[in-house]
């Protein structure tokens, strides 16, 4: 399967002439990359995806796929695969008919369709479900059918709009692995829209964090997490301590703070709460009239500190991130 790069150049989209959904967004997505658009609802991530798919036409800016300007190309000529949160299966068709749809639109011969449908269903472990109707499948199975339907046409780009959002947590984690594995196997460029930062961090090669129609930061999951560039990104991804506000706020992840004996520590304070998280404990420590979050991983035995204990806080200056205001 070949894959294609995607480029959004200064793309803007306004709805009803006033609501700016996407505001001058420029992105470059490499061929074969697993790329996530991450942000809260209304941040413009879904609109960006829908412009790549062709459901929305940008008011300004161009979109290129595989080096070709497709801004004015109708949806049905774009040769992309897409998976929706609501699965969007054809309820009046069987699983096999659903998967075969894109091939039929491409006038692929019957035996070829059969072969490729069988192969696609095998890819998503749904062999034997050909004759079922979507309504007879579980949510996870339906999403696999949707996936098979999208990949069977061997698209150069696979677009996923919160595809796992409707699944429960356990199933979602399993599907995350499967989707990532499938993408790697096919080598397809995958654009993944999500509001779930854990999901984005776990699966993506790179992430674009969006807010208010703009891209706040693009980077690998590690970069995004370790070196958030803006206060929004720092706040949106995981938990963070803001050391000081103002023109150049500085931030520190809770796990970068060590709990030490109060004597000789950077700050001395008192444990307010200690939340046991399984693999770690999250402490809320009051020091100097402020509350700090500190996460301590358990190595061996549980940490003995409890609410009311006096503790000291320590960290390395290298771990403090300076943010743009």
């Amino acid at each position: 399967m070949t894959s294609a790069s995607i480029k959004l150049a200064s793309v803007t989209k306004t709805f009803d002439g006033k609501v700016v959904a996407v505001d001058d967004v420029t992105l470059e997505i490499g061929a074969g990359e697993f790329f996530s658009l991450l942000g809260p609802s209304g941040c413009g991530k879904t609109t960006s995806l829908r412009m790549i798919a062709g459901f929305e036409h940008p008011d300004a800016g161009r979109i290129h796929v595989g080096g070709r300007d497709i801004t004015d190309l109708p949806v049905h000529h774009r040769d992309m695969g897409m998976v929706f949160q609501s699965y969007a299966l054809f309820p009046h068709r069987t699983v096999a008919e659903n998967v075969a749809f894109g091939l039929r639109m491409r006038a692929v011969s019957k035996p070829e369709i059969e072969r490729r449908v069988a192969a696609a269903l095998a890819q998503v472990a749904l062999t034997g479900f050909e004759g079922r109707r979507p309504s007879q499948l579980s949510g996870g199975q339906q999403q696999r059918v949707a996936l098979a339907r999208a990949i069977v046409i061997e698209p150069r780009v696979l677009l996923c709009d919160e595809p796992l959002g409707a699944l429960d947590r356990k199933l979602r984690q399993q599907m995350q692995f499967e989707l990532k594995e499938l993408q790697r196997r096919l080598g397809v460029t995958l654009v993944f829209v999500t509001h779930d930062q854990e999901e984005a961090l776990a699966m993506s090669d790179r992430i674009a964090v969006m807010s208010g129609g703009r891209v706040e930061q693009v980077g690998t999951p590690t970069e995004i997490y370790e070196r958030p560039r803006t206060r929004f990104v720092a706040d949106f991804i995981g938990e963070i301590n803001l050391l000081d506000e103002g023109a150049r706020p500085r931030a520190l992840r809770p796990e970068k703070i060590r709990l030490v004996p109060p004597a000789g520590a950077r700050l001395a304070g008192t444990v307010e709460t200690a939340n046991f998280l399984g693999g770690a404990t999250l402490y809320r420590v009051n020091a100097g009239g402020r509350t700090y979050l500190a996460r301590e991983a358990h190595s061996g035995e549980r940490s003995p500190r409890a609410a009311g204990d006096a503790v000291g806080l320590a960290w390395n200056d290298a771990d403090v991130v300076s943010l743009e205001s």
Partner: peptide, 15 residues
């Protein structure tokens, strides 16, 4: 669910 129609369009079906 209009996504069903969108799914068909993206799969190559003309309007």
């Amino acid at each position: 669910d209009r996504r069903i129609e969108e799914a068909a369009a993206v799969l190559g079906a003309s309007p």
